[in-house]
């Protein structure tokens, strides 16, 4: 899988693309946690993420905990329907900041 990034309005936007499963989770975890240490405000745009398993959710949970501990801000946006369903089953929609649109997510990490 890929992890593209860009800067917008004082926030880092990360766009993981492809499949986030037990084959790819470890490399994604390393790359994501490095970016989160360097940037206090991060939006994860998941529009390119086609698939996530519990191995990928584990990484997102660890990332959200790290951001909370360091008083940063993290918002997720643009989940594909299948990904949204997996988040819902996991109870992640209530513990993570999940938005429909990227602008909304940017507003949440700036606030």
């Amino acid at each position: 899988m890929e992890l593209n990034h860009e800067l917008a309005q004082e926030a880092l936007i990360l766009k993981p693309a492809g499949r986030l499963d037990s084959n790819t989770a470890q490399a994604f975890e390393k790359a994501l946690l490095e970016q989160l240490q360097a940037h206090p405000r991060v939006v994860l745009d998941l529009s390119g993420l086609d698939y996530v398993s519990s191995a990928g959710l584990r990484v997102l949970l660890i990332a959200a905990k790290q951001v909370k501990q360091s008083a940063g801000k993290l918002a997720l946006c643009a989940l594909q329907p299948a990904i949204h369903q997996v988040f819902e089953m996991s109870g992640f929609l209530t513990i993570l900041t999940v938005c429909d649109a990227r602008d909304e997510a940017l507003a949440r990490v700036k606030g």
């Binding site: 519990s54 959710l57 996991s90 993570l96």
Partner: peptide
């Protein structure tokens, strides 16, 4: 555990939950 807040939420255990769901 699907109820705790972010700080308390345990990492892991979701895979078999998906199977059952």
């Amino acid at each position: 555990d699907l109820e705790s807040d972010l700080e308390q939420r345990r990492v892991g255990g979701l895979g078999l939950h998906f199977v059952r769901e």
